[in-house]
Simulated scan of single mutants.
Amino acid sequence: MLLPAPRGPLSERLAHLLRRDQDGESAQLVREAAEADDDPDPLSDLDHQLSLWILNELSFRGFEDVDDRWEFAPEVAGLRAILEAPFEKALREVCADWLARAQSYEGDVAEQIFALTEDFDEGPDLSRHVRRDATVDQVRDFLRERSIYHLKESDPHTFVIPRLSGPAKAHLVELQYDEYGGGRTGHLHHELFAGTLRAAGLDDAYGAYLGEVGAETLAASNAMALFCLHRRLRGAAMGHLAAFEATSSIPCRRIAAGLRRVGFGDEAAHYYDEHVEADAVHEQLAAREICGTMVSSGDVDRSEVLFGAVACLVLDARQSEVLMSRWETTSARGESLAAGAGA
């Protein structure tokens, strides 16, 4: 993957810096741009989110046109910290009300996570729309947006394994082994999703649609990287994982049905079929055996686990709202044009 096209002055300066040898003057220009980025909502600032995604990606698959040594360059560490601080602050603010609600539920942390996922009612139900009403173009749009995460699925959480110990660590390895296809080439879940993209007539290359997705999609990816790349946030990382798994099985069943409804068939639906059963098991592993053990052992604070769970749900809701709003606008425009043509 090559560096994506810039989406503003910050990502433009960052791309210029990363494509050349380390240059103190260039690094200072990027730092100044980052510090001047005072958008009141970094969660919706595309330039901010793309720049942070690029910096995070240096720790994943990297870029063909960027020297891998940039990953641990002091300039990059400093820039990432500058962009992460307002991002984490904004994320904690938008999660505050639901976090307080989650903390009020009775039971252990696993029961609180399950109660949260049952009660959470923000954002449209995207899986129901895909199941019943989405057009072929909307389904493809949905898959393009989801490709940003699903083509790197499980990789962020793998960073947490060495930060755990005892039963929590063993159960995370167990869960990740499933996500990586039980060690069988071609069965890794990101490979299965690549098959879905191909069956839907889309590009299965990693990061192929990075230049088309919005800030909300990048923010969801960046939140996982934030939680999983920082040891202090390992509780949030596992809470995020638990909420993701607990809200996956039934929606995956609906999405698989929607893919078949629009004519993409079994090959496209296979990824989602696989997750219907797998995630029903994974939600118990993540919530009870990983999060529950971490909290009961005193390794992490319960509130941080719940924060991660809330963040997962809130960011997914924001993604869904943007997609549905876009589709409604497009549909309304199409209806208007059709009415005009028939007049």
Rank of each mutant, 00 (worst) to 15 (best):
R128M: 02
D316H: 13
Y209W: 14
P6H: 03
L188N: 09
L10M: 05
D299V: 12
V305L: 02
A278V: 12
I250M: 12
Y105K: 13
G258C: 03
G107V: 11
A225W: 00
L143D: 10
L50K: 14
E277D: 11
L79F: 02
A242H: 04
E212N: 01
D39H: 14
T247I: 08
L143S: 14
A317G: 10
G258P: 07
Y272C: 01
R61Q: 09
E84T: 00
H16A: 06
L17C: 01
V76R: 07
E212R: 09
A257F: 06
Q138K: 04
R253P: 01
R318D: 05
G265K: 14
L14M: 00
R333W: 09
R69K: 03
Y209G: 10
S296L: 09
H150V: 11
S51V: 06
S325V: 00
R232W: 14
E84M: 03
A34F: 04
H157G: 00
P167G: 04
D119G: 04
D279W: 05
E283C: 10
G263K: 05
E245Q: 13
P162G: 06
A77T: 12
G195M: 07
I82P: 08
H230N: 14
A286E: 02
I255G: 12
A85Y: 04
G186F: 13
K152V: 14
H275I: 07
S11N: 09
K169T: 08
D47N: 12
G181N: 12
S320R: 12
E289N: 02
V213G: 03
R144I: 01
A33V: 06
L116P: 11
E212V: 01
G235L: 07
P9Q: 06
V139D: 04
R61L: 04
L241S: 03
A309G: 10
G182V: 13
A339G: 00
L18C: 00
D133Y: 02
S154Q: 09
L188R: 15
G78S: 08
L52A: 02
A34M: 05
R318Y: 04
P9G: 04
V160K: 05
S303E: 15
E289D: 11
V281W: 12
N222Y: 04
G214Y: 06
Y209K: 13
R146A: 13
A338M: 01
L202C: 09
D178R: 03
V322E: 14
A199S: 10
G265E: 12
L164M: 08
P42V: 11
E289H: 10
H270I: 00
H275K: 07
G183V: 08
S59Y: 12
G239R: 07
D204K: 12
V305M: 03
W327S: 03
D301Q: 15
Y209H: 15
V139W: 06
H270Q: 11
A102V: 08
A256M: 12
E216H: 08
H190Y: 15
V213H: 10
A110P: 10
R302K: 09
A278F: 11
L58Y: 05
A269P: 08
E64Y: 06
L55A: 03
L259S: 07
D121W: 02
A205M: 13
R198D: 14
G340L: 10
A257D: 15
L241W: 00
R254A: 03
R163M: 10
S296N: 05
A90P: 02
E267S: 11
R20C: 00
Q49G: 06
P74I: 02
C252I: 00
Q112E: 14
G334Y: 03
E35I: 03
Q284N: 11
L83D: 08
L197G: 13
M238R: 00
A269N: 06
